[in-house]
Design a protein around this nucleic acid. Structure first.
Lengths: 192, 192
DNA sequence: CCATTTCATTGACAAAAGTCAATGGTTTTT
DNA sequence: AAAAACCATTGACTTTTGTCAATGAAATGG
């Protein structure tokens, strides 16, 4: 159950067996059914979630329309960090697209782990650094590349997500309407 | 010279005088003239820069056109983190818009500080977490808000940058052409 | 202080993306 | 198994944004 979590952890920071057991004591498993919320806008985000199985999406709702901020599949971590850290109401929804198995780090677990296990702090630092770099690249490509290339990059970078997620959600992630993405795909297909 | 740096540091992590002196020993001051590069695309980013004075911009150049990724004024930190951490060539330029005074943390200083001073790791973690949250909000507003509101948010959030930076750079930051921003401003002004 | 460069604005036009509505195929639910 | 909900695609049309070119004002550098 915790295999993938610790595998990913150890890719960044090696742990002894004892350390692993120590950390494991702070973690909580949780299952979600399809369409079930992990977090709803307005609630306070109470955990950082690591995905052992399944697919989730994090999205904002702005004047009726949804905008997908992030997908998360096996091995990824997802949360509304701002809400989690400050205790302010969340601005995003997080929802299971498919049935999912998660490992949760609660706020109190997070704070305790920072105190008792320096390797946890290092892991968090590296995790967020990676997320920041990825987000920066995404943002850069968003404002500098033509839509078609952005879509192509996405399919090359995340072929597994393309398989598992409806197309209109990928459009939303790329900041497009479903119609526009459909037309771009058609144009790309016609050139082959 | 290091006042602002340690002021910002202590807002996140308090330090004793000894700790401050210890850390200071790893820092290097640097001045830039207007238009001078701190980093050029293709070079390896050798430092994290804290701005004591002046204004910098970080931007990408994609098929001839520039796209501003970030501004940095007094009290902000700027770097091509990916290049800094991996040693890969930078994908961004960083340049002084006005004459600037910086405090640099070199790669080796960064690595040493992580080893010898846990508070430095905590500071870095919190710094990057803040940057990540800010970037996520920016990206969200980019894909979900109409241009006019994005501009309004920017002017409200960073009135000092609006004062100090030419308008076409703000357009670039928002992902617009200068002409489009000019027209939006006109529209906004006409409604008053 | 003059020459040059940079900058913001505007107009005319082109290209890109969004909106609305309809269709037909899937999948999901009951 | 039938009904309902979801989904991708397409067409006609509108809105938004970009491109190119010109102008005049302001800032910059020698």
């Amino acid at each position: 159950m915790y295999d993938l979590f610790f595998q990913k952890f150890q890719e960044k920071v090696p742990l002894s067996n004892e350390e692993q057991e120590q950390i494991k004591a702070y973690l909580t498993p949780k299952k979600l059914r399809k369409r079930q919320y992990l977090l709803q806008k307005g609630d306070v985000c109470k955990a950082i979630a690591f995905v052992e199985k399944g697919t989730l999406r994090e999205y904002s709702v702005e004047s009726g329309s949804e905008h997908i901020i992030q997908f998360a599949i096996e091995g990824w971590t997802i949360s509304d960090l701002f809400s989690f850290l400050t205790g302010e109401p969340a601005t995003y929804h997080i929802e299971a697209i498919e049935e999912a198995e998660l490992i949760l780090i609660s706020k109190s677990a997070h704070e305790e782990l920072l105190k008792v296990q320096p390797k946890y702090e290092t892991y968090m630092r590296l995790l967020i650094t990676g997320a920041y770099i990825a987000l920066q690249r995404r943002h850069t490509s968003n404002i500098s590349l033509p839509v078609e290339e952005r879509y192509r990059n996405f399919t090359e970078m995340y072929p597994d997500i393309v398989q598992r997620v409806p197309q209109h959600m990928i459009a939303s992630y790329l900041g497009l309407t479903p119609e526009t993405l459909s037309r771009i795909r058609k144009k790309m297909a016609n050139r082959e």
